[in-house]
Design a protein around this nucleic acid. Structure first.
Lengths: 192, 192
DNA sequence: CGGTGAAGCGGATAGAACATCCGTTTCGTG
DNA sequence: CACGAAACGGATGTTCTATCCGCTTCACCG
């Protein structure tokens, strides 16, 4: 599983492709590999060689965001109040998922094409779980909701905000925060 | 907007097509119009004439379920306790959305191709709103959550349960009910 | 009834999107 | 500099989507 370092030109092309992928995601353009190739001034085969499917490219585009989220979660784990730490982290995560369109599809997808992403997602799930368990231990969260539920719940909140007809991105973000508030209240409420 | 009654053969074909559409939805097969034509022993053009897009067919497939939901909501409105009526109805709605795969996409879609569906959705949103308003009036629900939020929240709950890796449909339904419980708790909790 | 025109039918096929293959080019090492 | 491996690119086969138009069926009317 040790990766041979890419040749210089290959690295450059790969980088270009990811950049274009990022741009497409930000613009809401669907990722079509032929289209990406054109925009990156690269042969179609080059794109397909690096990323066999649109999802694979999406995952790579999403990776930095997921990593940032993971570090954030690690920091949150050192917070003193379990509930506050969980809550603040989830708000940050929601904002990230709304802002960066590449993240929620990757999150929601069952399995991943890329080993790196799989590992990253696993790490995040574990971190989510630890944050939740701390809250459980402090008696601050409904014990009926488990590790396996937190990521889906987040996806649900984001999905709800996405479905809702909203004029601007800010509106959507505000809705997501309100929905998260409801869910958090439900999580905590049941514990009492 | 008065619709001319279909010719006998046209009605038969249309019916066949919808039937096949229903089957595809139940089997989780993606609705491809050419494929539907083959399965319905009908020319491609016939399918396209009745349903210009897969979504249009999906809407028609979903319509009976949406209608059932609407009548259920109307019944719920005559319940004596506002909160109980809302809660029971939302549980029933969640079950329906999980069971019938045609409903949530139609629900989540912003606009509809079909006039009938548009009207039906509008009716449902109104009914949801009335149920929620009764709960508001009874001081049983967070006033920060409005009419425009209820449908998205339902979509979110269903989405969360769909995303969650689950062995069986029953698991998924159970998860959805748990998530709805959390949301309801959050809705009610904030009101107090 | 049988004739007639409108409504509907079907499938060949044009067009778009996707993915692969292979001859050519570029890179890095000895 | 020469050579083999790695990477490139785009022409091209494949698949999926949707339209067009010549033919058939239906329903109505004399």
């Amino acid at each position: 599983m040790t990766t041979v370092p890419l040749r210089k030109d290959a690295a450059r092309n790969r980088h270009r492709i990811v950049e274009v992928g990022r741009r497409f995601v930000d613009e809401g353009t669907p990722i079509q590999l032929n289209e990406v190739a054109r925009a990156a001034s690269v042969g179609v085969a080059t794109v397909y060689r690096h990323f066999p499917t649109p999802e694979a490219l999406l995952e790579t585009v999403a990776a930095p965001g997921l990593e940032a989220l993971a570090s954030h979660a690690e920091q949150a784990l050192s917070g003193d109040d379990a509930w506050t730490a969980l809550r603040d982290f989830l708000f940050a995560a929601t904002d990230a998922l709304i802002t960066d369109a590449s993240m929620s599809p990757v999150f929601a997808a069952a399995a991943s094409t890329l080993a790196h992403t799989t590992e990253l997602k696993q790490r995040l799930v574990t971190l989510f779980g630890q944050l939740l368990d701390r809250a459980h231990a402090a008696g601050a969260a409904d014990p009926g909701v488990t590790q396996a539920d937190l990521v889906p719940l987040m996806c649900g909140v984001v999905h709800a905000a996405t479905v809702r007809p909203a004029a601007t991105d800010a509106d959507r973000a505000a809705a997501a925060r309100r929905y998260l508030t409801v869910v958090l209240e439900g999580l905590r409420g049941h514990a009492r």
